[in-house]
C-alpha cells in the first residue's frame, strides 16, 4: 500500500479506502449509540416487578380495592348483579368505543371488573362512583366512565384498559 507511486493511483481507488474507513467508522459509532440508548429502557429489576399477586377474598360485593401494578393503580371491583345488568343493558350504539361488558371480564367471573385505573385521555386517575353513568369520573378534563369502565362522555378516546390477569384460585388473582 505504501508504494511510492500510490499518489498517482486513480481517484476511484483512493476514494475506496476513504469510503471504507468512513463506513466502518459510522458503523462503530452506531454500535456505541446502542448501549447509550438502551440504558434508558426498563432495567432488569423493574421488569422483575411486572407481576403482582392479590388476595381478593376480602372484597365484598359492591366494593372495590386499588392495587399498584407497574406503578399504576389497578381498580379491582366486585360488582353487584344490579351493576352487571346495568352495564349489559347499554346499547353498543351509545358507546364511543363500542365493547360488550362480557368482553371486559373473564367468563364465569363476571362480577370482577379488573382494569388499569388510568384515564385514557391524559393519564389521571378517575374517581370511583362519580359521574353521570354510575361508574368513574376523571376530574382532570371531565371524562365519564360507566360501571364497565367504558368511556361515555368527555374527551377520553377509548375505554379504560384491561390488563392481563388470571385467577389462580377463587381468592387469588395474578395481574401481569
Amino acid at each position: 500500500m505504501n508504494k511510492k507511486s500510490d499518489y498517482k493511483d486513480k481517484p476511484t481507488r483512493r476514494e475506496f479506502i476513504h469510503i471504507a474507513t468512513t463506513t466502518v467508522g459510522v458503523v462503530g459509532v452506531g454500535c456505541v449509540a446502542l448501549p447509550l440508548v438502551t440504558q434508558m429502557n426498563p432495567d432488569a429489576s423493574v421488569k422483575a416487578l411486572a407481576k403482582v399477586e392479590v388476595d381478593v377474598s376480602r372484597i365484598s360485593k359492591g366494593n372495590e380495592v386499588t392495587v399498584m401494578w407497574r406503578g399504576k393503580p389497578i381498580f379491582i371491583r366486585r360488582r353487584t348483579d344490579q351493576e352487571i345488568n346495568k352495564a349489559r343493558n347499554v346499547s353498543l350504539k351509545d358507546l364511543k368505543d363500542p365493547q360488550k361488558d362480557e368482553d371486559r371480564v373473564k367468563k364465569g367471573k363476571d362480577e370482577w371488573l379488573i382494569m388499569v385505573g388510568v384515564c385514557t385521555h391524559l393519564g389521571c386517575v378517575p374517581l370511583k362512583q362519580q359521574g353521570e353513568f354510575g361508574g368513574w369520573f376523571c376530574p382532570c378534563h371531565g371524562s365519564h366512565y360507566d360501571i364497565s369502565g367504558r368511556i361515555r362522555k368527555g374527551p377520553a378516546p377509548v375505554n379504560m384498559e384491561i390488563p392481563n390477569y388470571e385467577f389462580v384460585s377463587d381468592s387469588k388473582l395474578i395481574i401481569g
Binding site: L34, P35, L36, T38, Q39, N41, D43, A44, S45, V46
Partner: peptide
C-alpha cells in the same frame, strides 16, 4: 451495584 447488575449495559458504562 444496581447500575452494575440491573441497568441495561450499566456495567459497561
Amino acid at each position: 451495584e444496581h447500575i452494575m447488575r440491573d441497568v441495561n449495559y450499566g456495567w459497561l458504562i
